[in-house]
Nucleic acid binder design. Structure first.
Lengths: 187, 187
DNA sequence: TGCCAAACGGCGGGGCCCTCCGTTATGTTA
DNA sequence: TAACATAACGGAGGGCCCCGCCGTTTGGCA
């Protein structure tokens, strides 16, 4: 299915995506679809044709970054220190989340829908994180019972909570460190 | 200033607030101001007159819960175990955040504006948390360098990340525990 | 009771999301 | 290469929302 699109369709798809990236970067996950259409020089219906809803558009916008994170996870799988590997990946994830506006919002928005569709950002990130977490857990470097969903939720939360305040990157790093090592002193 | 409002003004104020509570509970921080006006049986301008923006309305809606949290903090100040007191309060805060839709959103929305105005929810919560945190820190129960802003941000993030998924209360508790005790095993 | 400021609320402008439908561009076949 | 079938386009219109304006009502006070 979905063999080959027509030339103009491919052209518009690329154009919309390009504009959407800029627009989302500027205004977050709530960027105006209509404005994206205007700037891209297409009708608003065309945007909806390529991306049925905001959710799909955001997925497409962040697919690249998600891919980069997945790649990084693969690299880190070879790191000799399982704990370090997990921490490094979570730091990278946090950096992405706090630096690229709307990504965290896209992730929660995605979670809100009953999706039979695979290939969601959440699924991909989860798949990327799983091996790192498992390895770290096997090495005894992780608190018992932690799941990949927990990790994604925590980082997403940190991103959302720091969004739009001075220096979200630094704040995010700080909060991640607290979360990883614990707010309370070990008993 | 702002001596005594007229009778109808007070009446409408109460009515709007009442409706707003229900509406926000149902639709989160993005509830329609116009619908609130319709249901309350007043003009939309009247809503804006009492609450210049969504932010102020949300503040008013949650003021009660914030007050309850502040009170609880005072109670807990008498708890013999400083660590336990802090944990209990954070759990209560998380429960509020995950059970009452929109509260976390209201908190971040509040942070986005340059506010010279005191009496924001953030300020009140911060003030409530400060003594508990300080006492716990003095007892050596808290990781060094943790601030009240950190605590608020973390709980807010947890609330946002769990909003609108199955069983946010349980998820929130779980994530809070992880955050407090640390995702990583102590080295 | 009568006055007047405080408070109200309807209305119009602008924006967004969404859908429908007539028009255009593209790929293909003769 | 010319004509056709259709994938893809984009403008227009409806519904909802936020916002500000401004003429009208209402409540408190002399």
């Amino acid at each position: 299915m979905a063999v080959v699109k027509r030339a103009d369709a491919r052209r518009n798809h690329a154009r919309i995506l390009e504009v959407a990236e800029a627009e989302v970067a500027a205004h977050g996950a709530d960027a105006s679809l209509e404005k994206i259409a205007r700037v891209a020089g297409v009708g608003s219906a065309t945007v909806r044709r390529h991306f049925p809803g905001r959710r799909e558009l955001l997925q497409a916008v962040f697919a690249q970054r998600i891919g980069a994170l997945a790649e990084y996870a693969v690299e880190l799988a070879a790191d000799p220190d399982p704990r370090r590997a997990l921490v490094l990946w979570l730091e990278a994830f946090t950096d992405y989340g706090t630096s690229s506006r709307g990504m965290a919002g896209a992730l929660v928005a995605e979670g809100l829908v009953e999706d039979g569709d695979d290939e969601g950002c959440t699924v991909r990130l989860s798949a990327a994180a799983a091996p790192l977490l498992e390895r770290a857990a096997r090495a005894g470097a992780v608190a018992p019972g932690v799941t990949t969903e927990d990790l994604l939720a925590l980082v997403t939360g940190i991103s959302l909570a720091t969004e739009g305040r001075p220096d979200p990157a630094e704040q995010g790093r700080r909060l991640l460190r607290l979360t990883l090592e614990g707010v309370l002193a070990p008993r």
